[in-house]
Computed example of a mutant assay.
Amino acid sequence: MRALLITGPVGVGKTTVAEAVGDALAAASVPHAVIDLDRLRQRWPSPADDPFDLELELRNLSAVARNYAEAGAHRLVLAGVLERRADRSRYAAAAGAKLTVCRLKADLSVIRKRLVARHHDSALQWHLNRAEELEKIFAEAWVEDFVGDADQPVAEVAQDVVTGWLAAERV
């Protein structure tokens, strides 16, 4: 099993690109599954000592990845936020796969436009602040194997991500 984790700040297009990568794998007849990690930890309230519910996300990823593998998936495409390099091994273990990480990067003005289009409520400011915070975290954490430019059309981003994934696996 091989897994690709597409990470980046909120609003960069992780889930959209993951779905497009899944489409590319389907077109190439590669058995796979696309997993939105946010959905694996979506509950309220989160524990005070784990505000983004990483522990629940990893437990659920382990179960879901195992089910997909048993159903014949050879590749997993994951979309989520990986903030700490130390957690890479935990994601790989939960996925039961060799893990490659792609960090999507886009200009904050592009992310801002996407977030404004998506959030019309009080959550907008939180998401804008979180996007800036994550950009700073990623600049220092070096969680990725390669970076994808998310300022271009989704199909182009997905193609670049697939190409980067294949190149990173050869290393």
Results as ranks from 00 to 15, higher is better:
residue 133 E to G: 10
residue 115 L to V: 11
residue 164 G to H: 08
residue 107 D to W: 14
residue 134 L to D: 07
residue 136 K to D: 14
residue 125 Q to R: 12
residue 120 H to E: 02
residue 111 I to S: 05
residue 136 K to R: 13
residue 155 A to Q: 09
residue 157 V to E: 10
residue 146 F to K: 05
residue 122 S to Q: 11
residue 124 L to G: 07
residue 135 E to N: 06
residue 108 L to P: 13
residue 167 A to V: 10
residue 151 D to Y: 12
residue 165 W to D: 00
residue 163 T to Q: 04
residue 142 W to V: 12
residue 112 R to W: 07
residue 149 D to G: 08
residue 156 E to V: 03
residue 133 E to Q: 05
residue 153 P to K: 11
residue 147 V to I: 13
residue 133 E to L: 14
residue 130 R to T: 03
residue 126 W to P: 07
residue 158 A to V: 10
residue 107 D to N: 15
residue 164 G to C: 02
residue 140 E to P: 08
residue 151 D to G: 13
residue 149 D to I: 12
residue 126 W to K: 13
residue 122 S to K: 09
residue 166 L to T: 14
residue 120 H to M: 09
residue 111 I to N: 01
residue 124 L to E: 09
residue 108 L to N: 06
residue 154 V to M: 06
residue 161 V to S: 14
residue 144 E to Y: 03
residue 161 V to I: 15
residue 161 V to W: 12
residue 163 T to W: 07
residue 116 V to A: 01
residue 131 A to Y: 04
residue 119 H to W: 11
residue 148 G to A: 06
residue 142 W to S: 15
residue 146 F to D: 01
residue 156 E to Y: 04
residue 138 F to M: 05
residue 133 E to S: 04
residue 145 D to E: 07
residue 125 Q to N: 14
residue 140 E to I: 13
residue 121 D to P: 05
residue 122 S to A: 15
residue 106 A to S: 11
residue 128 L to S: 07
residue 147 V to G: 04
residue 131 A to W: 02
residue 123 A to L: 02
residue 130 R to V: 11
residue 164 G to Q: 12
residue 146 F to Y: 05
residue 158 A to F: 05
residue 110 V to D: 08
residue 137 I to P: 03
residue 139 A to D: 13
residue 159 Q to Y: 08
residue 158 A to I: 02
residue 117 A to W: 09
residue 143 V to H: 05
residue 147 V to R: 13
residue 124 L to K: 11
residue 132 E to F: 07
residue 109 S to G: 13
residue 162 V to H: 01
residue 164 G to N: 06
residue 165 W to L: 02
residue 154 V to A: 06
residue 131 A to S: 04
residue 125 Q to F: 09
residue 162 V to E: 00
residue 138 F to N: 00
residue 132 E to S: 05
residue 136 K to M: 14
residue 113 K to P: 07
residue 129 N to H: 09
residue 147 V to M: 00
residue 130 R to W: 06
residue 148 G to Q: 06
residue 140 E to S: 14
residue 156 E to C: 08
residue 166 L to P: 01
residue 117 A to K: 09
residue 167 A to K: 04
residue 133 E to I: 03
residue 123 A to I: 02
residue 152 Q to Y: 03
residue 153 P to T: 07
residue 116 V to H: 00
residue 123 A to T: 13
residue 165 W to M: 00
residue 149 D to N: 11
residue 129 N to P: 00
residue 119 H to C: 02
residue 121 D to W: 06
residue 125 Q to W: 12
residue 123 A to S: 11
residue 105 K to F: 14
residue 156 E to P: 10
residue 133 E to T: 04
residue 155 A to V: 03
residue 151 D to P: 06
residue 157 V to H: 13
residue 120 H to F: 13
residue 148 G to N: 02
residue 128 L to I: 07
residue 125 Q to P: 04
residue 130 R to P: 01
residue 158 A to D: 03
residue 117 A to Q: 05
residue 120 H to V: 11
residue 153 P to G: 04
residue 160 D to P: 05
residue 123 A to H: 15
residue 133 E to C: 08
residue 150 A to W: 06
residue 140 E to K: 14
residue 153 P to N: 01
residue 119 H to K: 12
residue 129 N to V: 02
residue 151 D to N: 14
residue 127 H to M: 09
residue 154 V to K: 10
residue 130 R to C: 06
residue 112 R to F: 03
residue 160 D to K: 15
residue 149 D to W: 12
residue 133 E to P: 10
residue 148 G to Y: 04
residue 139 A to Y: 05
residue 150 A to V: 03
residue 110 V to K: 06
residue 161 V to T: 05
residue 131 A to E: 12
residue 106 A to C: 14
residue 117 A to L: 08
residue 147 V to Q: 08
